[in-house]
Design a protein around this nucleic acid. Sequence first.
DNA 1: GATATACGGAGGTTATTGCTCCACTTTTTT
DNA 2: AAAAAAGTGGAGCAATAACCTCCGTATATC
Lengths: 223, 223
Amino acid sequence: MSMDIENNPRPLRADAKRNLTKILDAAALVFAEKGLDATLDEVAAVAGVGVGTVYRRFPDKDALIGALFDNAIDEIVNLANTAPRHGDAWEALVWFLEEALQRQCANRGLRDVVVGSSFPIDRIEAAKQRLSPALAHLVENAQRDGFLRDDVVSADFPIMEMMISFLGNMTAHVAPDLWRRYLTIILDGLVVSRNSPSPLGALPDDTVMGEAMRSAHRHARRA
Amino acid sequence: MSMDIENNPRPLRADAKRNLTKILDAAALVFAEKGLDATLDEVAAVAGVGVGTVYRRFPDKDALIGALFDNAIDEIVNLANTAPRHGDAWEALVWFLEEALQRQCANRGLRDVVVGSSFPIDRIEAAKQRLSPALAHLVENAQRDGFLRDDVVSADFPIMEMMISFLGNMTAHVAPDLWRRYLTIILDGLVVSRNSPSPLGALPDDTVMGEAMRSAHRHARRA
DNA sequence: GATATACGGAGGTTATTGCTCCACTTTTTT
DNA sequence: AAAAAAGTGGAGCAATAACCTCCGTATATC
């Protein structure tokens, strides 16, 4: 990752190169956990370097975020292209949703990139352009082959993904796989017809919602 | 509403009483639209009064929020109690979900109260205590009568409500009824079995997601 | 050992938010 | 009608926080 930074006119000094990877790793970790409005001070702290060091490598916060998330976005776009290789039309669609959501649910920053603050909107627009046709194919194929109900459109899927990943981010540190439960329910709602429910994933502990809320509270109070 | 404020030892002066309602109306409007971290300056501006006036009536922001949302929460709790009067066990459950979500989707502040920042957690806990048994009955009845799949529990419902209302808040000013579409899909996933899909609500315009995102961006940039 | 490169992290700058204060206005009372 | 009581507005204070700069010191490279 970040090729364009790693081979400059003059190559980086050895320690600088080490620190750069430490920074990128730390940033990935911190942004995934806390979202894009984590501070670079926090990233620096986790990386074990000073803020100044971060700012020597990246002109500003957005540059670092950009470097990190261009990849993550591309990865998701690629999932849609790879999906048809994973079984029949229904299995392909499900595979894509599961893989994409696994990434989105584990990465709060990724949600912020798509939905929220401070990420150049044109890059998201561009990503959507690239994702769109592949997703449309997945949807159309699943409909053509009689799996997926006919009254949904491909635009429904990013929306449902947002919904689920919102939940996934909320419960990430309490019940990291809980979102699968609701994906299953939604898939059971998307299928043309069925005689019985599909098996659901992990049951929500009675305390899950409380814990998730409590941690949301804590997070809102900057802790 | 806010009885405890309107009849004090000494009654309010006529203009003060007028202003109080203006403030409460404005606060309801602003918090519903922008969520709980709208500023009281903004509330005052919409009410057409100065901030000072707001602070004479309410010791601080939390007091105003409390006064406003205690009612809203109670209202939702009551929905669960009233639900059984609206048809069979399935219809009652659906009625409750639709009514509750209609309120949650139209009111960003209500989501913040439940999930987020700065609302006394004990009051939410208390509300949950009161909601819990009624909701459990709705769920159990729907299961007993063979409508609702047996592998869901009543704790699933607040979670799914959160999911949907998150989307509802996001798309509120672009497509205020879009959430119903996904509620229908989820209900189709919750039913024990079915031969064909239920009719969905409004189709998402191709631009909906883009617009919703753009407005999220704008909102994040304080506009 | 000399030179270029990199580091750290205290603190400057700017923005925002919750809230206070008090000179002034409006209502009520006498 | 005038005094007293109650209320008003909104400039601005204090606190917080977030991004980023600066430069004396340390490390790598030649």
